[in-house]
Amino acid sequence: MIETKKLTKNFGNLVAVSDLDLYIGAGDIFGFIGPNGAGKTTTMRILVTLLEPTSGAAFIDGLDVSKKGKDVRRRVGYMPDFMGVYDDLKVFEYLEFFAAAFGIEYKKRKAIVDGVLELTDLVSKRAAPVDSLSRGMQQRLGLARVLIHDPKVLVLDEPASGLDPRARIEMRELLRELKRMGKTIMISSHILSELEEICDRIGIIERGQFVFSGTIEEIRPRLGIQSKVRVKVVGDPARAIELLSALPQIQKVEAAGDYLSVTFCEGQNADGVIARTLVNAGLDLVYLHPEQLKLDDAFLQLTKGIVH
């Protein structure tokens, strides 16, 4: 649904996006992650036809963004990272304005606007002046606006910034709802743990290039991280280390505070073996839990925080 081929954008000497190849299938939620200045916003602006690429091509629904601008804009809903609102309009008028701009018939507009107000939980603000809304509400209004022409593709640049924790959870629910409606969503964020739960695939970009792209599961081997478990035994940890290190499936065992951190060999998973070994040796096993690879860690490992 969204595709780029060797997409490059230069600002003078600065290469903001370089040879980016991206593919997002229909109905997917794609998380776009990267440090400040990595080129996320630039890529998204090119996808929604607001910037011309220096070289390479980008396609939305099979349409070239630099040639079929108008058709692409009909299919895409774009929410910019910083957005202003008109100060002389009310919420309903604002949305109806964009409905008209997208060429929706006069008769249908009211029903559609009421529908998105409902979806984004803004019905109570229907007649409020747009510039009186709080930051979070404006963000929700932005999302409502994006949905007004029922686009197939949503490009959301940091939609969760400025939202309180509750609103973040609501936003996540909303995105899931939209996915159920069959929309393809590309979302950038700095809140990585947020993307972890809703994204089908993620792409980590740095200095205009992907350093990783794939599913969350795929990120482990890519990082060379093997599966780990945390173990706690009551009694004699030293003996536990000795016993576990002897097992063929286990690569290494380290003490980490009260816990033991057990690393498996490549492709092995031996939770059961660990438990059996320890219990059989008469040690009290009180805790055993797989260590989760957090997206934040992956982010830190993959990007060196080089800002250009």
Binding site: R45, V48, T49, L50, K70, D71, R73, R74, V76, Y78, P80, F82, M83, G84, V85, Y86, D87, F98, A101, F102, G103, R145
Partner: peptide, 15 residues
Amino acid sequence: EREARTWPILLATPL
């Protein structure tokens, strides 16, 4: 509109 940052939003419509 450019100063108020509403310009890109308007240009993202098919107008």
